[in-house]
Design a protein around this nucleic acid. Sequence first.
DNA 1: AGATGTTTCTAAATCGATATAGATTTTTCT
DNA 2: AGAAAAATCTATATCGATTTAGAAACATCT
Lengths: 365, 365
Amino acid sequence: MIFPCRLYRSNSAVRREGLQQVVRGNKYTVTDRLELKKGEKPTLKTIARLSGLAVPTVSRALNDAPDIKSATKVRVREIAEGIGYVPNRAGVRLRTGRTNVISLVLSTQHDLTNHTGSLISSIAGALQGTPFHMNVTPYFPNEDIMKPIRYIVETRSADAVILNQVAPNDERVRYLMDKNFPFVTHGRSLWCDQHPYYDFDNEIVGDRAMRKLADRGRRNILLIAPPRDQFYAKHTIDGCERAAKDLGIAITTHPTITSDFPRIPLTDEIADFLQKYPEIDGIICASTSSAMASVASLERIGRNLGEDIDVFAKEAVSILEWFRPGILTVFEDVTIAGDFVARAAMQAVKNPDAPPMQCLEKPVF
Amino acid sequence: MIFPCRLYRSNSAVRREGLQQVVRGNKYTVTDRLELKKGEKPTLKTIARLSGLAVPTVSRALNDAPDIKSATKVRVREIAEGIGYVPNRAGVRLRTGRTNVISLVLSTQHDLTNHTGSLISSIAGALQGTPFHMNVTPYFPNEDIMKPIRYIVETRSADAVILNQVAPNDERVRYLMDKNFPFVTHGRSLWCDQHPYYDFDNEIVGDRAMRKLADRGRRNILLIAPPRDQFYAKHTIDGCERAAKDLGIAITTHPTITSDFPRIPLTDEIADFLQKYPEIDGIICASTSSAMASVASLERIGRNLGEDIDVFAKEAVSILEWFRPGILTVFEDVTIAGDFVARAAMQAVKNPDAPPMQCLEKPVF
DNA sequence: AGATGTTTCTAAATCGATATAGATTTTTCT
DNA sequence: AGAAAAATCTATATCGATTTAGAAACATCT
């Protein structure tokens, strides 16, 4: 049946007869309604055809809009369920600007242990069953730290970002707050009271490390601290120094190397330091690899772990107890962090006015 | 100026006068052309306005279509460059179905060392400067291995997937080949001659491990093999057994444990095995953690590494040399794998008819 | 019955890109 | 010069969703 333009019948009228109307040029063709769909993926249009409703009605029904009869909502949802409808992400994104993507912006430090992997897995786990996907945007040591952030914000390629290795006065944090773009940090910034974050309380780590060493009679401690540009370096150092004052023992932060250095310089420098200052009887390490290097260097110069010197380390993967018996450790569970930052990111997207989710995790000894 | 429908002037005519025409209802409004853009993000429309060309012309110019004058292409590209145009991914995706996303489907094995992190970084590195983004879709031990794959294919949420931990008769590979969906495997399948893959030649690893141990006078070797469902387990075992026959020495694959087991059962079982079969004088380990467990177990039962027994291991992160001196190792550089699979995935997307990129990497001793 | 108000739905426009078909312009040929 | 062919560009429809404004259906009141 072909009707010229004038004979156009309202869609609702046509549909009531169980038919379907198609516009082609200025002609309206009324065809039989297809009760079943072919082997192609269902869209709102499919549901509209099957239900006899208009596409926007279907959309609003699925989004639980207040102006749709609840009987209609039920019917639409049943059809959607029945044919396995999944919203097209490109369509939603184009129209609304929402990407349903959370982007994890990571430095590509070639770390020894798999805590990056754990972080990624746990974030993905938290995102399971939600409409959110996870995108990983690594940045490389030689490139501008702002580049990936600016890219994401300017192209709106994610709804929120998750950052790690946060500096106190972090340029990325400033930028994101300024742009009012949702984000979560793994680690605190100077303005962390105003944004979502998860952090492990490294001040307590430092404090308790000192006390453990003091309990074992150690009086002159060397700290292999995290890189100074990251805020948790300050937290760790503060914790150690406060405890040192409290306990009346000595603490020295190694002046040149940090816990993220590669194996060779770490081992060499620590060995040198121990030989120059033989009174050192305890080492606190902010990472697994610096702990291994510490042990290697004291073995090199003939000191005895657990006897004339102790090593304390924070680790995110339990490996040091395999390495040598007697290393003192505290475990930082990165999967908790991943789960938290993922949920905080979703919260920041869905509910931007709610107070930001924040967690300062107490280490368990 | 407002013109009724009849007085509509062709866009080219209007533009030639340096004006711009807007359709509103059935009225056409001709306004002054904006020479400069405001503070919002540029689209093809912006370039069209600034250049006086039609939107499709701009699109085709940027895509280097053959029917656009090269002078026009230059002009359009200059404007695009000048205003910092970046194509809207949702627009492209909706229209073309191309997502410019490559999805890495990973198992969330809680691995000790950071080779997953290295893989992710190196893939990201290879994707830098291309239009492709990387998406990570982990799957969990308790869930259907096909679920993420089916999701990606059915919703077309990526242009290609990268798989690891490939089984000989891998269901995912079968499905993807059947659907003709671009993919790359890290590891071989039974049909790997027909699809892109990267694999480390574990047959050679097994062979050379045996020879190294034989060189050191070892005659009874225990193999802690990878999990049997993965193809590289067979390659490793084959390599060892072939060399064993060749060299006239004995090889036993541990019957119950595999190289991915957790620390405790690994250590216990290996210690038991060594006590039951004291003639064992060499162990080949397919992973870092099984090598550590092997060392721990022989220390527990009083055997001496490097003296009455040797341990050979494959590792993706150099850590065993820190662990104990004397462990024999071969290094598998995961970053090469990541770079290769990323390029192979892009190739599979952009040039589906070209022969698949394949690499069987020879280990370096 | 007619006016008024509510509830529920629909039409049309839109987001940004591209494919298709068709319209100009320019070049070539007779 | 005029016709035919080639080169270059434009108009329109489209992908799948949502927003807006307005229409239809139904209920309530006088």
